[in-house]
């Protein structure tokens, strides 16, 4: 998809919140968090929220970078690879203790949660989302 900034923000927030939320509900019980389920849910949902909040900021940077491209496009693979910088930043913030409500998180639990969620959102945005929302791709990724 070729989003506009508004479309990027809407898609990021809605798809991460709804689809990411469902996925987090499903995957948290099997994550090697070493913590009670209630505690794990709290951590995974705060991490998901962080992906959304920081993501909104990242989107402005990506939008800026798009301006240097003649086609004003965003190659499909970049949508996947930006997970690397975004994931690393969140991991750094967790370890610095700067994400409120999140204590120590085992590395594998974070990697599994973040990577699967990211991949799911990327894959859905690059195809299946067009099935229920036929106008979404022509509207620069806007739902509203």
């Amino acid at each position: 998809m070729l989003p506009t900034l508004n479309g990027r923000l809407q898609s990021r927030i809605l798809v991460t919140a709804i689809l990411g939320g469902i996925w987090t509900l499903i995957i948290t019980p099997v994550l090697p968090t070493g913590a009670p389920l209630g505690e794990s849910y709290k951590t995974t949902f705060i991490i998901l929220l962080t992906v959304i909040v920081l993501g909104v900021l990242w989107e402005f940077l990506y939008h800026f970078l798009q301006q240097f491209r003649w086609e004003k496009d965003w190659p499909t693979s970049w949508g996947l690879f930006t997970g690397i910088n975004e994931g690393l930043l969140i991991w750094l913030l967790i370890n610095l203790g700067w994400i409120p409500g999140v204590g120590q998180v085992p590395g594998w639990a974070f990697v599994i949660q973040f990577c699967t969620t990211w991949f799911l959102i990327w894959a859905v945005q690059n195809g299946p989302l067009r099935v229920p929302f036929i106008r979404w791709r022509f509207n620069g990724g806007r739902f509203l």
């Binding site: 998809m1 070729l2 989003p3 506009t4 479309g7 798009q66 003649w70 086609e71 004003k72 496009d73 791709r137 022509f138 509207n139 620069g140 990724g141």
Partner: peptide, 17 residues
């Protein structure tokens, strides 16, 4: 050189808008 007849974002992205 250009991928398609128009820059790609005319079909839904920034240029369409």
């Amino acid at each position: 050189y250009q991928g398609f007849n128009y820059p790609k974002s005319v079909w839904g992205g920034q240029l369409k808008e």
